[in-house]
Amino acid sequence: MEIQTERLVLRQFTSSDKDIQAIYDILSDEEVNQYLPLFPLRNKQEAENYYTDRIHPLYENNSSYYFAICLKEDNQSIGYVTVNLEEGHDFGYALKKELWGNGIVTEAGLAVISEMKRMGIKYITAAHDIHNIASGRVMQKLGMTYQYSYQEQWQPKDILVTFRMYQLNLDDKKNRVFKKYWNMYAEHFIEDI
């Protein structure tokens, strides 16, 4: 599947050298990676392994959408946006830091959300580290609303993180709240934000 917006092409990653380099460029940056669960990639071989072991199986199993965010002008990946098709329909994203603040993730996210709604997905969820305020602002721009917070011992970094869980209902059940994380983690609460 490919989605186009005014500035972007959203497409699958491939095993091409160009895409492997893009994965490395995105996921090796310590600042981009600060709020992601994995450690920064150390070399291009780790990027290739990441594609082979983590991204490609999602395409084969149809268990998630994992779109490379590309600028139309060169079709070069500058980030990604994902939606897990399992229970929580977890929505995630990352972007090269030199492009932060240009509305790129919001533009890509809105296009993906529109496609999810067209496909009959009833809701999506997303969570951000409470220290990653910019990610929370993206969720709000996408129309998501804060539901609750919870603490999780995040792996493989093995750090305690407080997450804010956001949700966007794509059908007429506007009061639906996905409670899995609330029920899963003993430390959960609603913040006044």
Results as ranks from 00 to 15, higher is better:
175 N>V: 11
158 D>N: 09
158 D>Q: 05
153 Q>V: 04
6 E>L: 02
55 I>F: 12
156 P>S: 13
159 I>C: 02
9 V>A: 00
22 A>L: 04
56 H>S: 08
25 D>N: 15
47 A>E: 02
41 L>D: 08
56 H>R: 14
43 N>Q: 06
2 E>K: 01
98 E>K: 13
34 Q>V: 00
47 A>S: 09
176 R>H: 15
53 D>G: 03
49 N>G: 09
70 C>L: 05
30 E>D: 12
170 L>R: 06
94 A>G: 11
18 K>G: 06
171 D>T: 07
62 N>W: 05
91 F>H: 02
127 A>P: 00
156 P>N: 13
145 T>L: 13
83 V>Q: 12
122 K>T: 01
84 N>P: 03
68 A>Y: 01
96 K>N: 11
19 D>A: 06
192 D>P: 11
77 S>D: 03
19 D>I: 02
115 E>S: 12
170 L>C: 08
45 Q>G: 01
75 N>S: 14
27 L>H: 13
132 N>D: 11
160 L>H: 01
187 E>A: 15
77 S>R: 03
5 T>L: 01
136 G>M: 06
47 A>D: 04
142 L>C: 08
131 H>K: 13
134 A>L: 06
58 L>F: 15
107 E>K: 03
105 V>C: 04
60 E>G: 06
38 L>F: 15
73 E>G: 05
166 Y>P: 10
192 D>A: 14
150 Y>E: 07
159 I>L: 06
187 E>W: 05
180 K>E: 13
128 H>P: 00
148 Y>V: 08
151 Q>S: 14
5 T>F: 00
183 N>R: 12
36 L>E: 06
157 K>H: 04
37 P>M: 06
122 K>I: 00
24 Y>A: 09
136 G>E: 04
139 M>C: 06
70 C>S: 07
9 V>L: 07
11 R>N: 07
51 Y>A: 04
94 A>N: 12
30 E>H: 09
148 Y>D: 11
140 Q>N: 08
168 L>F: 11
48 E>M: 10
144 M>D: 04
38 L>I: 15
130 I>E: 05
23 I>G: 04
71 L>K: 03
32 V>N: 02
169 N>W: 07
75 N>I: 11
180 K>L: 10
7 R>W: 07
7 R>I: 03
183 N>C: 09
63 S>F: 09
185 Y>D: 10
75 N>L: 14
157 K>A: 00
187 E>S: 15
97 K>D: 03
78 I>R: 01
127 A>I: 09
115 E>F: 13
42 R>T: 10
85 L>C: 11
113 I>P: 02
64 S>W: 12
174 K>T: 15
191 E>P: 06
148 Y>S: 13
72 K>H: 00
47 A>I: 01
57 P>E: 05
181 Y>G: 04
59 Y>N: 12
144 M>R: 07
169 N>L: 08
179 K>W: 15
177 V>Q: 10
102 N>R: 15
180 K>T: 12
89 H>P: 02
8 L>G: 05
14 T>Q: 09
